[in-house]
Simulated scan of single mutants.
Amino acid sequence: MSYDEIESLLLKYREGKCSPAERDRIHAWYNQVQSGAPQAELSDTEKSVLKARMWSAIQHERKASGKTRTFLPRLSPMTVRIFGSVAAVLIVSLSLFYFFSNKPAPGTVAGDTLLLEASQEGLVSTANSTARPMRVKLVDSSEVTLAPGAALTYPRQFSAAKREVQLTGDAFFNITKDSRRPFFVYSGKLVTRVLGTSFWVKKGREEHQMQVEVVCGKVSVFENESIGSEKDASQTKHQFNKRVILTPNQRVTYFEESGHLMTSLVDKPVLLTAHAELPPAIYKNMALPEIFQRLEDAYGVDIVVSGDAVNECTFTGDLTSMSLFDQLDLICQSNDGSYEVQGTRILVSAAGCK
């Protein structure tokens, strides 16, 4: 039924002037309301007006009943249930409308508050809604590869002092070097600053975690303390805190709840140069300290030897094309030793040599 029909019939129903057919229509409409079926015929405005009219009628009825009991007919239990149900449905509908109309739109909640100042040319937002990585080329020739579901906001033209972008989700950055204009990536409360390098920014393994992994170059990572303040973050000077510096094959994990930055090695360290440019990793009775030095140079990691016994050990074998940790496994097994990753370093120990 339309708004006018509902209003007219409810008034007649309350006054006891409905015909049997009209009463059946009211009951049918009441059952529809009770079942939760959508009332598509009513607009939000009509619902609001109808609710106000109903509330006014209820108040009028209460006042009238206090003065005289003969002005209005007594409401039947069915009538009370109808008016109560209609009012409840309208109140819930209006409450939901109010909740969602006042709820921040996607991209404006705490983790995604806009942190960029709009330049004269304006901002661009690109989202990857596909199932494949999407490459975005910036005005300075830098490239950002967005993982599925990721989004990037950036200015059409960078300022003369700095380059800034904002990321939601996971992405790989290959940044053109510009020593005069540092490049900033804002991702929630995590800030990554580089001059020119390649790195990942992505979600951590657990909720409320973010990670930065460096492929080449040097990266500075901060916590942005200005996030979460009452002021507009895009108009507030960013307050960077707890800086850590990362080099290739290093990773930092940011724990949003505690604000802690924990550094470590990436799961699969990669060579700083291509395999083709390196000599074959074939060793014959070569001392372990010399092999470890080659691994340090090849992967940019620190390998620390614990105890003098390791310095007397040698290794013979072909480690070409093996990953860093596979090489260390084979070397340590052949010399009754072991290794463990402690932060950004690898600690090697051995009881003796076979």
Rank of each mutant, 00 (worst) to 15 (best):
P279N: 04
L324V: 07
G16D: 13
F97N: 14
V109C: 06
S141T: 05
E5V: 12
T153M: 14
P148A: 14
V89W: 08
C353K: 05
A281W: 07
V304S: 03
K237V: 09
E223M: 04
K67E: 15
S234E: 07
L116S: 06
A127D: 07
W29N: 13
M1W: 04
C313Q: 04
K354T: 06
D140H: 00
E340Q: 10
D112P: 06
E206C: 03
K231C: 10
H260P: 01
Y283P: 05
Q120G: 09
E22H: 08
S179I: 01
P148H: 10
C18Q: 01
G317D: 06
E213P: 03
D4F: 05
V201R: 00
H238G: 09
V244H: 03
A150R: 00
L167P: 06
F199K: 00
M54L: 15
T70I: 13
G317P: 06
G16H: 12
L72Q: 10
P279C: 09
L114G: 11
V266F: 01
Y283E: 12
R25V: 14
E207P: 08
A87R: 00
A87S: 12
R25E: 15
A287M: 09
V252F: 03
Q293M: 07
P148L: 14
L330Q: 12
L246I: 05
P148C: 13
L271A: 09
I331Y: 03
A88L: 14
Y98C: 13
S229I: 07
E277K: 12
E5I: 06
F183L: 14
D44Y: 04
N241W: 03
F292N: 07
L324I: 07
P106D: 12
A52Q: 12
S65Q: 10
D329Y: 02
F240P: 08
V348I: 15
A131G: 10
I175V: 15
V215E: 02
A233G: 01
P279Q: 09
A281D: 13
Y339R: 11
N285I: 01
R69K: 13
C216Y: 02
V124F: 06
E340C: 09
